[in-house]
């Protein structure tokens, strides 16, 4: 057990227990590709004026959520920030419902009343989608609290960015989560930029060590490699399920697009982005592995590509043809009628 209390580690190589099966690997490939294609389509619809407001794309970070979700069960819950489309798809929420929420239509998960940052599925135990940076962190610990209180065996996976980690409420939460041994996995998706501010300009020290004063074990992981993510998540979740309290995983990842659709990302060079894309792309690298291992050939992967493309096309069609919410919806859902 590499994750031990009062210890923070930087993983050099994944202590992968066993290589996942062929079927599992192909599933990860498919899930990551779905997120990628979905987000590309969302960017396109945004450009056409069909999606409004804020829209934060997950392109480049797919391995993080797919790797972690691969270790989770139906008892577990998920919460994240506003960069949330990938998490919803990874939780098994329908592409159609997510895309239709982006376009603000009645067929969206929140009937068009939430938008990109505010979608939920009680059925899939996905608790949002939160627009205030780091607000999901204490809420995630609260979901962990509920898992513990209800003794349902589940834990909460609470995702946050490298910007959120500097909010005070994160440390209020780390303290309580450690004190009460709450079953919560804190995943820092370090994509290097908090909007336009590079990590080095905003954060002192190492992010994976931010819980060490509270005795929360932390680990830095290559978040561009789904297998390394999976291995780290597996270990962390085992520790959490054993009743030891929270764990922090810092995923070193990268977003290819701007902070949101309206961000031209002038704070970094094209070369930097291109280098990441060509050398560290999580989907390309898994594809290489699948081919090398003989688990798939170009033809069979093309079939997966086509299936994913069909799902996304169908989602976009649904999202552009679903009606706008009825005007009467303005007044519904303010309060639960007792």
């Amino acid at each position: 057990m590499a994750v031990t209390k009062r210890r923070t580690t930087r993983s050099a190589a994944p202590a992968a227990p066993t290589l996942p099966s062929k079927e599992e690997l192909i599933r990860y490939y498919r899930e990551m590709l779905l997120i990628r294609r979905f987000e590309e389509k969302a960017g396109q619809l945004y450009g056409m004026g069909l999606i409004g407001g804020f829209c934060h794309l997950y392109i480049g970070q797919e391995a993080v959520v797919v790797g972690i979700q691969s270790c989770m069960t139906e008892a577990d819950s998920v919460i994240t920030s506003y960069r949330d489309h990938g998490h919803m798809l990874a939780c098994g929420m329908e592409s159609k419902g997510v895309m239709a929420e982006l376009t603000g239509r009645a067929g969206g998960y929140s009937k068009g009343k939430g938008g990109s940052m505010h979608m939920f599925s009680r059925e899939k135990k996905f608790y949002g989608g939160h627009g205030i940076v780091a607000a999901q962190v204490p809420i995630g610990a609260g979901l962990g609290f509920a898992h513990k209180y209800n003794k349902d065996g589940g834990f909460n996976a609470c995702y946050m960015g490298d910007g959120a980690i500097n909010q005070g409420q994160v440390y209020e939460t780390f303290n309580m989560a450690a004190l009460w041994k709450l079953p919560t996995l804190f995943v820092i998706e370090n994509n290097k930029y908090a909007m336009g501010t590079a990590q080095a300009r905003a954060s002192a020290g190492e992010l994976f060590q931010r819980g060490s004063a509270y005795g929360i074990p932390g680990k830095q992981v290559n978040g561009m490699d789904v297998l390394e993510v999976r291995a780290a998540a597996h270990e962390a979740i085992e520790y959490i399920r054993a009743g030891n309290g929270p764990v922090i995983l810092e995923m070193q990842t990268y977003r290819y697009r701007g902070h949101s659709m309206s961000d031209p990302a002038k704070y970094r060079t094209k070369e930097e982005v291109n280098k990441m894309r060509s050398e560290s792309d999580p989907i390309d690298n898994l594809k290489k592995l699948l081919l090398e291992q003989g688990y798939a050939d170009e033809e069979s992967l093309k079939v997966v590509d086509r299936e994913v493309k069909d799902i996304v096309t169908e989602a976009a069609d649904f999202a552009t043809t679903s009606p706008e919410p009825d005007p009467s919806e303005l007044w519904t859902d303010v309060l639960v009628e007792a």
């Binding site: 998960y109 009937k111 939430g114 505010h118 939920f120 608790y127 989608g129 859902d333 639960v336």
Partner: peptide
């Protein structure tokens, strides 16, 4: 959140 979730939450 209730409103933003279309009545789910």
């Amino acid at each position: 959140t209730l409103y933003m979730s279309g009545g789910q939450m």
